[in-house]
Design a protein around this nucleic acid. Structure first.
Length: 778
DNA sequence: CTAGGGTTAG
């Protein structure tokens, strides 16, 4: 008898795969042993442990007279495999058809299923009636279930009243608090537990490390990890996985890697965690390396792996891999199963610039949540398609079941900033207030950016002083706005104020600050802060910082210093760096260095038309027409076409866009008449058209027409005839303001006695009474 | 032979 039992245990234990279980099952059927309730119940369990719950059910159905063991096994088989609906349905079947009474073993799985679906108050009543409330397993399940629904107080009361507690009860309480984000109280309970002489086990640690990561409590996290090492728990699978995640959230990749490397057994969660760690800390290459290694050792990726992978290929800008990632996800049918994975694919295509593919995937999604919409809006906005972003937002507004959240405002507001659509942006501001999110740091910052970039610096400032300012985000935005408007000194003052308030500046702060210095010609100050950034704040300069420095030195005319600066950079200069030098050469008319810079530039990026135009303008400026021709034909040979320039103006809630030479506007005739009158008045005041940048092979009279048909000229003229006298005019354009338009606009501001504010791709130009506040660089 | 508390997510 005893020997036979051991044999069965061995048989069951040795079945580690479904096909082995099936062979054992067949053997048991042949030998007639399957008629034994004892044996068949074990089969029900075996199949569920191997993940195949349908075979559990089939075996279960073939058992003619089921006892309480069999029912309990079937219910927990469903719970084990995550089939919570089926588990509850099975429990109902049991209650109504079996005629049996549930026992202590029945409730924990049932309560777990409730925790994932519906509030289990009714089950709790049944537990009370049967007097099972203080069984430690049942009680832990109740605590867990109530915590899942946020009834932490109920859970806490139950926990406090428990006559006997074990480590499982403490874990249930601590994890309940952790899952509700209540780190402080969780740590309090932990202290109580230690006072009662109970030690943490791997499960306690896993919960606590997770909540430390969420609440950014690095100190407690480290202390717990120290304790882990002291207790010898550091090699535990669960503890290690949770540690990797925590260190990744804190950005300590070295620690995450150390934990991963010292593990003696890893599972899918470990691999997903280390891959996500690198993916989320902007190291897609290493992340991909881990993914490859994981495949080599034969671990199958799951949905979460692919979520990371989609982001990795987007960061690597690898279009080919992106299609295989999409294909893999489609073959597994995961898109229909989970919204998040579909959203990740939309995001991946959008980040790769394949916005149409992103749109197609979005249209095909079986269900869309608010994040799907936010992802698409952000995708359009980040690809420079602000109008499309707004259109998508408007479509979303029509879906009643989708409620905009913080992410929605953060994704759509930059589109209004981009277009300079102040009045429409203000409508969004209204919507934000209605949703009570205007005091949210991120939304507030987008609003600051929107008002700043739409020319309302005062409104941006007053909003800035309303939002919470504990972190750097709003400070960065306002410093950047001040820089754009040419208020370098004020930007510096705000930076000092930020330090006074003990707000820690980050890499973005310094980009804003350095570009503010460069816009206002504050060379020495800029150099000083570039050093402060590295010495005091230990921030490694990125391309953006180097670009700002080259711009700062170059704009101020220190072209050689700028070039020396580039030579001293520890990283290989990219297109943005050479572009900054080229731009400076253009301002100061340095043909030789300009040619050199553009040669380097075309080595790293030969596709950007803007740089060809810059170089051709340098040649044109010094009358070197062969140079102009050469650059132009070079660009033509490479199949590059000039980006069409446009300017927009918002009048009565409507944004009108003008392209250069565009004659289709309904008020075109009136605009022409206004421009003619204006040009005559300007000339009488001493205006001389500057044809430097117009092709030299055009007839004289045509040249002037080209200048007067520049998009900003059209937009300004339209503004003058469509708004009351002396009111300010705000213009937005995608390219830089050209030299002639800059001069002309000064005259126009004097003649019409209007303030004219032009935002170009670089900065703001405030024209007033014949002068421009931005100095004379454009 | 049946039970609780745990780690990765856009």
């Amino acid at each position: 008898m005893r020997i036979e039992k051991i044999d069965f245990d061995l048989l069951f234990i040795s079945c580690t795969k479904v096909h082995l279980a099936k062979r054992l099952h067949a053997l048991l059927v042949v030998s007639g042993k399957v008629r034994d309730l004892f044996i068949s119940t074990r089969l029900v369990n075996l199949y569920s442990y191997l993940g195949d719950v349908s075979f559990s059910r089939r075996t279960f159905n073939q058992i003619p007279k089921k006892d309480i063991y069999t029912w309990n096994s079937m219910i927990s088989a469903y719970v084990r495999t995550g089939r919570f609906h089926e588990a509850l349905y099975c429990f109902h079947q049991f209650s109504f058809t079996s005629g049996l009474q549930p026992n202590f073993y029945t409730f924990p799985p049932v309560l777990k299923a409730c925790g994932n679906l519906v509030d289990g108050k009714k089950i709790h009543c049944q537990v009370l009636k049967l007097g099972f409330q203080w069984d430690i397993y049942v009680a832990a399940s109740l605590i867990h279930m109530y915590s899942r629904f946020g009834f932490v107080a109920v859970a806490r009361k139950l926990f406090n009243e428990m006559p006997v507690r074990d480590i499982g009860s403490w874990n249930a309480m601590i994890s309940g608090l952790c899952q509700n984000g209540n780190a402080t109280e969780a740590l309090d309970v932990l202290n109580e537990m230690r006072l009662e002489g109970e030690n943490m086990d791997p499960l306690t640690v896993a919960s606590l490390l997770t909540v430390c990561a969420q609440s950014n409590d690095m100190l407690s996290g480290m202390l717990i990890h120290l304790y882990v090492i002291k207790q010898g728990l550091e090699f535990d699978l669960l503890v290690s996985n949770a540690s990797i995640n925590m260190y990744a959230k804190f950005g300590c990749l070295a620690n995450a890697l150390r934990v991963f490397n010292q593990m003696d057994a890893t599972d899918l969660v470990s691999w997903n965690s280390i891959i996500a760690a690198y993916e989320q800390n902007d190291d897609p290459k290493t992340a991909l390396g881990f993914f490859n290694k994981m495949q080599q050792i034969g671990i199958q990726p799951d949905l979460l792996t692919l979520l990371s992978l989609a982001s990795i290929v987007a960061q690597l800008a690898d279009c080919q891999k992106s299609r295989s990632v999409h294909g893999f996800i489609l073959r597994r049918g995961w898109v229909t199963e989970n919204v998040a994975i579909g959203n990740a694919v939309v995001d991946m295509y959008a980040k790769l610039g394949a916005i149409n593919s992103a749109r197609n995937v979005f249209e095909e999604l079986p269900t869309r949540d608010v994040i799907s919409w936010n992802t698409l809006i952000t995708g359009y906005a980040q690809n420079g398609l602000a109008n499309e972003a707004i259109e998508v937002y408007n479509t979303m507004e029509e879906c009643e079941e989708i409620i905009p959240n913080q992410g929605t405002w953060v994704s759509v507001l930059p589109a209004y900033s981009h277009l300079g659509a102040l009045q429409q942006g203000m409508k969004i501001h209204g919507g934000v207030i209605k949703n009570n999110l205007h005091m949210d740091v991120f939304v507030g910052t987008c609003l600051i950016d929107m008002y700043g970039k739409c020319g309302r610096l005062d409104d941006a400032m007053s909003l800035f002083y309303q939002v919470p300012r504990e972190n750097s985000v709003p400070w960065n935005a306002i410093i950047s706005c001040l820089g754009l408007h040419g208020h370098g000194e004020k930007a510096l003052k705000l930076f000092e104020e930020m330090l006074d308030k003990a707000v820690k500046p980050d890499h973005v702060t310094f980009v804003s600050l350095l570009s503010a210095c460069s816009h206002s010609g504050l060379v020495e100050v800029g150099k000083h802060y570039f050093h402060v950034m590295q010495e005091r704040y230990r921030i490694k300069p990125s391309y953006k910082h180097y670009g700002c420095m080259v711009d700062l030195l170059g704009r101020a005319g220190h072209l050689e210093t700028a070039y020396d600066f580039i030579k001293s950079m520890p990283i290989e200069p990219d297109a943005s760096i050479w572009g900054a030098l080229l731009g400076a050469c253009r301002i100061h008319g340095n043909v030789k260095l300009g040619k050199f810079a553009s040669d380097r530039l075309f080595e790293v990026d030969s596709e950007n038309i803007g740089y060809y135009i810059l170089l051709s303008n340098i040649y044109a400026n010094s009358g070197k027409w062969e140079g102009v021709d050469k650059v132009r034909s070079l660009a033509r040979d490479r199949g590059l076409r000039k980006t069409p320039g446009w300017s927009s103006i918002e009048i009565n809630n409507r944004v009108d866009v003008f392209y250069t030479g565009n004659q289709t506007h309904q008020k075109y005739q009136e605009i022409c008449i206004e421009l003619k009158v204006m040009t005559a008045k300007m000339k009488s005041l001493g205006y001389i058209p500057d044809f430097t940048f117009v092709l030299q092979d055009v007839e004289e009279d045509e040249k002037e027409e080209i200048l007067t048909s520049h998009s900003e000229r059209l937009a300004i003229a339209f503004g003058i005839i469509s708004t009351p006298p002396r009111t300010p005019i705000r213009i937005f354009k995608n390219l830089r303001v050209c030299g002639d338009c800059h001069t002309a606009t000064k005259y126009i501001s004097k003649i019409t006695e209007r303030e004219i504010i032009v935002r170009d791709s670089n900065r703001f130009h405030h024209f007033k009474d014949g002068t421009c506040s931005c100095g004379d660089y454009w």
